[in-house]
Design a binder for these strands. Structure first.
Lengths: 117, 117
DNA sequence: GTTATCAATTACCTTTAGGAAAGTTACTAT
DNA sequence: ATAGTAACTTTCCTAAAGGTAATTGATAAC
């Protein structure tokens, strides 16, 4: 039976992996999250211009909505003129930090691997 | 100067993150790697039918080539009739394990978060 | 009343990812 | 000669991701 338990666990892990990928795969989500880690909560314009680099307003808007729907960020409209909107990480978003750190570590090591080739 | 050092590091991290995503983003690469972790080296047919689940031969072939070009797996043609081909993780691929584990952990926690909502 | 700012949204388009189905090559077994 | 197997490859197609540029709505400053 131990083998079946093991196979079950493997399938569970594969499903959990696929869940994560469905949400976080793509060019921008991790970058937005990293930017919010580094610089703290930010306004739309800051994310657009400074921190992420290269993203368009349309795509940024869509990605932020996805992240909000999945409880990883909060969206706060401020009482300023003109209106500003602040995006911040939720507590739950802390769960993505190990992923991002691991991706950064891999990215650095991988670069040297490829150069060495 | 400390602030500039910090900003430089941030940009470096963002680039490393983008490097990782360029290679590993998408529906299948992490699944293939996880499958090779769990079940060890496998043949094309095994990856296709059993372990990953749902991938087509065309896509599997392309993903395996990408991973091989990036030194994450090796491709070995065996002396069998008919020919079989075995795919195995390289030593360098071990660097992706923390990413995958973190993604699995996040996937599980995220599922309960979303259900609770 | 014109211009500017912020946070988008809309329309349009191109590129990439990915899937389905059939075909290919090389070999073996019957 | 025919059928089967393994590892692909090819063709064709759709859907999703992502980019560009212009526009919107609310507000305020000049």
């Amino acid at each position: 039976m131990d083998e079946n338990v093991c196979i079950e666990t493997s399938k569970e892990n594969m499903l959990a992996l696929k869940d994560s990928l469905e949400l976080l795969s793509g060019k921008w989500k991790f970058c937005i999250l990293l930017s919010l880690y580094i610089y703290g909560s930010q306004r739309f314009k800051d994310l657009l211009a400074n921190s992420v680099g290269g993203i368009s307003p349309k795509v940024l808007s869509k990605e932020l909505q996805d992240l909000e729907n999945n409880l990883l960020i909060t969206r706060t409209v401020n009482n300023t003129k003109p209106v500003t909107v602040t995006y911040a990480l939720t507590k739950h978003a802390a769960e993505t930090q190990p992923v991002i750190n691991a991706l950064i570590t891999f990215g650095k090591k991988h670069r040297s691997q490829i150069i060495a080739k």
